[in-house]
Design a protein around this nucleic acid. Structure first.
Lengths: 179, 179
DNA sequence: CATAGGTTTTAACCTCGGTTAATGATCGAA
DNA sequence: TTCGATCATTAACCGAGGTTAAAACCTATG
C-alpha cells in the first residue's frame, strides 16, 4: 500500500469555513491533515495573549502538531482557516504504525520528513541571519502569492514584526527600486 | 540490518582537532556524521562576512548538510570543531538507499527525522516568539552545559545577538534574581 | 445606503540591541 | 614569563522596530 492510498482509505474528508479552527493550542489532536484546497494559518499564542504566525498552509501541504500527534502531549500551536478549506484528516499513529511494517509507507514518510526538515532549516536560517526587512524582501520574491492572500496583520506576525513595523518596512522597500 | 550496524559497518571513524573543519559552506559534502565525543559548531557565513551559529553539536548528535547530502547541492553552512572530536562519517546516500529497501533502516530514519523536526520546531518557536533575553534565560535553564563549554562570542551568535548584546543581557539577567 | 468592525497608515515616543572603540582579562605558544 | 591574540566588558551613539493612539480606509451585513 502506498502513502496516498492509505490516506484516502483511512482518512476523513473535512470541510471548514473561514474562521473555523482545526485544532487549538493547549488541547490534544493526534491527527495530521493533508490540505486539498484553501488557506490556513498555524499560530502560537503567548501567555500575554500575543499571536505569532508559525506558518501559512495551502493546497498540497501537510500539517499537524508533532508535539501532540507524535509525542502524545498537547498541541503547541493552533490551526485556523483563513479561507474555506478542504482537507483530509488522518490519525498520525495509523500512518506511523503502518510505516513500521510497510516499506512504501515508510519511504513516503521519509520523503515527507526530509522535505519538512528542509523547510524548517530555511526558516531557521531566515530568522537567524536576516533582518525583518530582508525576510520581507525574500518572501516577496519567493512567495508573493502568500502576500496577496493574507492580511498585513497576519503577514507581519509571520515575519516576526508588528503590523506597524511591517507597514514601515513596506514603505521603505516599495520606495526603493533596487528590488 | 539495523541503523547502528549500518553506520558501524559502512562508516569511517574520524578524529578531528579543535579548530579543524569537517565541511565548509559553499562546498559539497554528501556525508552525515554521528558524533561520539567532542563539541562542534555549525555556522552560516553571510556575504558581508558575518557569522551566525546554527547549532552546537555534541556526543550522540547527528549532523550533515541536507542541502548538499540530500538535494545534491552545496553545503549551506560550515561545521568546525570547538573541541577535539571523534565522529563516524557515513555517506548519506548509502543510508538513504538502504532505507528504501530495508524496513529497519527506514524506521530508524523516520525516528531520526522526527526528532530532528521537533528540534527545529523548537528553535523556530524561540526565534519567532521570544526576545533575545528570553532565549538566553531558556538556554541557561535547559542547556547550561552549552553555556559552560562555548565562548560568549559563539553563544551570542547562536542566540541571534552580538557579543556586546549578550554581555548586556547577561548583566541584566544575572543581577535579576527571579531566575 | 449606513454603520460597525477590521485593516492599514502615520506620528510620537521609547527600548533593545547594533556598531565602534577602548580597556581589561585570559589563554597559548615560544 | 612574556608577547600576541582572542575574549569579555563597558561606554557612547545610533537605528530598527515596539508601543500607543489617532486617523483613514475597507468591506460586510442589516
Amino acid at each position: 500500500m502506498n502513502f496516498l492510498e492509505l490516506v484516502e482509505d483511512k482518512g476523513k474528508i473535512i470541510d471548514k469555513k473561514k474562521g473555523e479552527h482545526i485544532f487549538v493550542q493547549g488541547f490534544p489532536d493526534t491527527s495530521i491533515y493533508f490540505i486539498k484546497s484553501g488557506l490556513l494559518k498555524a499560530y502560537y499564542t503567548t501567555e500575554e495573549g500575543k499571536e505569532y504566525v508559525k506558518l501559512f498552509i495551502m493546497a498540497n501541504d501537510v500539517i499537524g502538531s508533532l508535539s501532540s500527534a507524535y509525542k502524545g502531549g498537547l498541541c503547541s500551536f493552533s490551526l485556523v482557516c483563513l479561507e474555506n478549506s478542504n482537507l483530509i484528516k488522518i490519525s498520525f499513529s495509523v500512518i506511523y504504525e503502518h510505516s513500521k511494517t510497510d516499506q512504501h509507507v515508510a519511504n513516503s514518510m521519509v520523503e515527507l520528513l526530509l522535505k519538512f526538515s528542509m523547510k524548517k532549516e530555511k526558516r531557521e536560517f531566515e530568522f537567524l541571519c536576516l533582518s525583518a526587512e530582508k525576510r520581507y524582501r525574500q518572501l516577496k520574491k519567493e512567495s508573493s502569492i502568500i502576500i496577496e492572500r493574507v492580511t498585513q496583520n497576519d503577514l507581519s506576525r509571520y515575519l516576526g514584526v508588528t503590523p506597524v513595523g511591517l507597514s514601515r518596512i513596506k514603505k521603505r522597500v516599495n520606495s526603493d527600486m533596487t528590488g
